[in-house]
Amino acid sequence: MNKTEFYAKLSTPANDPASLALAAIQGDGEAGTYLRGVYDQFLAFSVEVTAFSRFDLEGTGQGEAYFATVIQVVGYEILEQLLDTFTSIINQTGGESTLVRNDLLRRRLFGNERLGPIARNIVKLWFTGNWYQLPRNWSEKFGPAPKDVTFTVSANAYVEGLLWTTIGAHPAGAKAQGYGSWANPPRIPEFGSDAVVR
């Protein structure tokens, strides 16, 4: 399936977005290769903005669902624009420090009136499993997206929210850490050294 077909199928309520995305990126031929490339870019962008490794991100099992969610809500074109911008920033800052890259990400992506809210929503998707309704001024400016309401992508997306991993805790109601585990200090996973102390 090519991206037009993919997008069309996503618009059919009966279809499960995550399985569709999986089928799309595993597809044969040029269309499959193309979509795989976009999905790879999506993950690369997600790694950059969540500070979780690709292994960690794929370890949630939610990559395809989030990929599909973004496309389903705001369409293909805007995601491609976002990812192309991201790729060009990465190409441009090859070998530069994180600080330089972050400055460009802020100026051209997060501070872009059209792409910024989408970029932030992708961050929020990974951390919470929730799609948050875009700011009203965004919809006024760039046209309302019919599916743009606040929703939890799935029960499992909730469970796999990286928010909980970040703080060494677990989502309420799932991934319990065992009787009495709460009496121990939390084990907060380490991550890249580019964090600045707030």
Binding site: V123, L163, G192
Partner: peptide, 28 residues
């Protein structure tokens, strides 16, 4: 913790490592 996450991302303009650090600072 949802309100904290959205405010760190939307108002705090954090992403990547600083976001993770921010979450630890704010939630834990």
């Amino acid at each position: 913790p949802y309100s904290d996450l959205t405010s760190l991302v939307d108002d705090g303009n954090l992403f990547g490592g600083p976001l993770r650090q921010g979450l630890v600072d704010r939630l834990s």
